[in-house]
Each structure stands twice: as structure tokens, then as C-alpha cells.
Design a protein around this nucleic acid. Structure first.
Length: 275
DNA sequence: CTGATGTCCTGTCGGC
DNA sequence: TGCCGACAGGACATCA
């Protein structure tokens, strides 16, 4: 579900509530997500104070005062939010957090593709596989066309798949890959190795632009995503190509947005503009 | 190494 | 209205 802009929106919304607060209680209502949560998670974090809530790619990292890191990934349908006072407990509320000031936070994930894990030490954090293999943050100052061009060299994989690969650039998913490729007017089927430096520059700028705009809009809400307060984002109204099969191309209304399948996922693009 | 496919799980939507 | 299949924002394993 949530790609980088949605995760960043959640982080911004929850950080003020979590930062400096002590975890009074963590409740595991259902530990068997895609990977099981550690059985001793509640005891391990109880009484600890959250120093910061950070984001790496699509992962949220709550740094605790004893050197532990609580890792959360929202998968496809995960939500992390502060429920309204009258909200009833839902069967997909897998973890709840109670903070020392009475704040209540819910991790809800219908499809259970998400992840909640505890990294016990900084040393363990440094080698945690899911994080250690991640490529550069797309919004980092150093992430430019040169980085992409280097990562694309000798790769015959299509651009779409390369950008979905979290080792190439970390945090993009199906929506923003499609949107960035359209903005850069690049064919999703193009092999990485024949992308020029100028095209890579264009792509890097397009990725940054679409992510920043999406973050400014509070992310995208298709089915499940909601921000920290449980509200929907707005960026879905500004998609150029994603989920717009048969609709006119925003750049030239005489063209039609088309859907193809790449690596088992839908790709939306304009065959003329991105030819 | 590559690229395609399958898998985890539940919900929703469109078509009949 | 009800049923059924297709599809869904991620990440990873497995296969040829």
C-alpha cells in the first residue's frame, strides 16, 4: 500500500505524539503478520521512551531510549493511526500502543502483509537485512541522475522493474513509479542500460517532484491508506496515469492511457508520449 | 545474474 | 441480490 509519501505523512502525523513519550503498554492482539512479531515484544518495549520516529524507505523506525528500534512496515493495507475516541476495536487491529499521556495508537492491517519487529541493539540495526539492502533515499540531496545512471548500467531489466527494486532506489512502489516515468516521458519497458545520462537526470527530477507533491497532498488514498488522524490523502486526484486506463493522456488528449503487465504488476503509461 | 511467476492474506469491485 | 473471479499500494522465494 503505502509508498514513501504515505509513510512520510504518517510519520509526520505521529511523530509529535510519540516523541519523548514513554510506552505504558504495547498490546499484541495478533502477532502473526507476514513475519511473526517477537513473542516478548510487549515486555521488551514497556516503559521505554521514544526518542524519535524516523523513516527509511517505507519503514518507520521508532528509536527507543535504550538503543532498541521498533520497526513498522505497513505492507499493502497497513494503517497506523490515532483512532477517534468512539471507534470500536477492529479485528484487524494487530498492535496497540498506549503512551504515558493516554495517547492510543493502533496498527491495523487487514491483509497482514505488514511487519512489526524489534531490533534490540544498534549493532543488530546495522545488519538488519530488510534495511541493510536498501538503496538510496529518492529525496536525498545526493540522489541524482548520476546515481540512477550508475545503477542502470548493464541492467537489461525494464525501467519499471528497476525503479520497483528497493535496492536501486528505496521507497517507490507501483503508483509513484508509473507517475515518475510518465513525468520523465520514459518508456517503462526500456532497458536500464540504454537510458542516457540526460534521461536519468530527468527521471531523478521527476521522482523527486512527484514524491514531494504527493507528500504535500497528504499522500494518496485508494482503498486503505489513512494518515495519523485516520483521514484520507488527496494525491490520488492528481494521478496522470495510475489507474487511468482508457482515459486521455494529460499531455496530449488524443492519446489514451494504457495498462500493461510487467513482473506481474500493472503498469500504466502513455504509449505515445512514453515511446 | 535475469526475469517471470507464485505466495502470503483479506477486501472490494465489476460482471453476470 | 448473490455469487465468482480478478485484482489490489509490498516483499520475498523459487524456478527455468
Amino acid at each position: 500500500m503505502p509508498e514513501l509519501p504515505e509513510v512520510e505523512t504518517v510519520r509526520c502525523g505521529l511523530a509529535p505524539f510519540l516523541t519523548g513519550r514513554r510506552i505504558a503498554r504495547l498490546t499484541m492482539r495478533r502477532p502473526d503478520l507476514r513475519r511473526a512479531m517477537p513473542a516478548d515484544l510487549p515486555e521488551a518495549v514497556q516503559g521505554r521512551t521514544v526518542k524519535t520516529l524516523d523513516r527509511r524507505a517505507k519503514y518507520l523506525l521508532a528509536r527507543l531510549d535504550d538503543g532498541q528500534t521498533l520497526v513498522l512496515h505497513l505492507g499493502m493495507t497497513g494503517r497506523l493511526f490515532i483512532p477517534a475516541p468512539d471507534r470500536a476495536v477492529n479485528i484487524h487491529d494487530h498492535v496497540t500502543l498506549d503512551l504515558d499521556d493516554g495517547t492510543h495508537i493502533v496498527f491495523n492491517d487487514a491483509r497482514r502483509f505488514g511487519q512489526v519487529d524489534l531490533i534490540r541493539t544498534p549493532a543488530e540495526l546495522a545488519v538488519y537485512p530488510a534495511l541493510a539492502l536498501l538503496g538510496p533515499e529518492p529525496l536525498a540531496p545526493g540522489m541524482d541522475g548520476g546515481v540512477l545512471h550508475g545503477a542502470f548500467a548493464d541492467r537489461r531489466v525494464p525501467l519499471k522493474s528497476l525503479l520497483m527494486d528497493q535496492r536501486v532506489v528505496a521507497g517507490l512502489g507501483n503508483i509513484y513509479v508509473c507517475e515518475a516515468l510518465f513525468r520523465a516521458r520514459l518508456d517503462p519497458k526500456r532497458a536500464g542500460s540504454n537510458v542516457t545520462r540526460a534521461e536519468a537526470d530527468r527521471l531523478a527530477k521527476s521522482i523527486k517532484a512527484v514524491l514531494l507533491e504527493a507528500i504535500a497532498s497528504g499522500g494518496s488514498t485508494l482503498r486503505d491508506y489513512v494518515n495519523a488522524a485516520g483521514a484520507a490523502g488527496y494525491f490520488q486526484h492528481r494521478f496522470d496515469v495510475y489507474d487511468r486506463v482508457g482515459k486521455p493522456c494529460p499531455a496530449d488528449p488524443s492519446h489514451t492511457i494504457t495498462r500493461i503487465s510487467q513482473a506481474g504488476r500493472s503498469t500504466f503509461y502513455c504509449p505515445q508520449c512514453q515511446g
